[in-house]
């Protein structure tokens, strides 16, 4: 479904991505792991067109490198950014409406269902997004992206700064998303959630993929964890 081949990206003269290769198949949960600064977030930003790509990014067989972000989103790629970026002066309901690509499209998700899954959001439907807790904002941000009915959703550090109980809720939501046939590219620094829910995972280091495997194989690869993941 998503194929990234020899992807390079630059911030000014800094060569951040130095030939990234990976793929995500339909309905899969794939994690992109690595320490801070190895290029995980830049990879998803480059796929979304926020950073100029050099190389090939194919989505459902179509080359998307060089397309605008809104065109890429329309093809079915959803993105939940690291900083959450909810719209603080709009209500929870308005934030969700913004996720819909048109007035008519319902897709796999609707607002009532989101509120059933997350009663906290339902109770605060008319409250401005800016006053929600960090965990509620994360849920809102993920639900907002789902309202656009993506075929794959790229989520950047969804558990960053969240309490363990909320992290469990995030994991449950990710599994619910996958159960409806939506592929997930999970960008994470923490191993725990990735090992628990991923089908496959990639480890990044120095701007490229340095390891590819399954959660079980990574658990056994002590040398990989020590060199590229553990702090």
């Amino acid at each position: 479904m998503l194929e990234v081949n020899d992807l390079h990206a630059y911030y000014g003269k800094s060569h951040i991505l130095q030939g990234v290769n990976f793929n995500v198949q339909e309905g899969e949960i794939v994690s992109l792991l690595g320490r801070n600064g190895v290029g995980r977030s830049t990879t998803v930003k480059t796929i979304m067109g926020e950073v100029a790509p050099v190389g090939s990014i194919k989505f459902k067989g179509e080359e998307i490198a060089g397309k605008n972000s809104f065109e890429i989103a329309h093809l079915g790629l959803g993105y939940v950014p690291e900083n959450r970026d909810i719209f603080p002066t709009l209500t929870v309901q308005q934030n969700l409406v913004l996720g819909m690509k048109s007035n008519k499209s319902q897709g796999r998700w609707d607002i009532e269902e989101m509120f059933r899954m997350f009663p906290n959001l339902g109770e605060r439907a008319e409250v401005n997004g800016g006053v929600l807790s960090g965990g509620e904002q994360q849920m809102l941000c993920m639900c907002r992206t789902l309202m656009g009915d993506p075929d794959i959703i790229m989520i950047d550090e969804p558990t960053e700064g969240l309490a363990p109980k909320i992290v469990e809720q995030v994991a449950l939501l990710l599994q619910e998303i996958a159960s409806r046939g939506v592929a997930i590219l999970l960008v994470e620094q923490k191993l725990s959630i990735a090992l628990k829910i991923s089908h496959r995972l990639y480890v990044m280091g120095h701007g490229k993929v340095v390891y590819e495997g399954t959660p079980d194989s990574l658990l056994q690869a002590d040398d990989v964890r020590a060199e590229w993941l553990e702090v």
Binding site: S69, F70, A73, H74, D85, F87, T89, L90, V97
Partner: peptide, 25 residues
């Protein structure tokens, strides 16, 4: 209106609105 909400959001967070599939330009 929906378009009004999109405009309000695009004013402060243009990149996020574009990532949701709205043609910000």
């Amino acid at each position: 209106s929906r378009i009004g909400i999109i405009i309000q959001a695009a004013i402060t967070h243009p990149n996020t609105v574009a990532n949701l599939g709205h043609n910000v330009p």
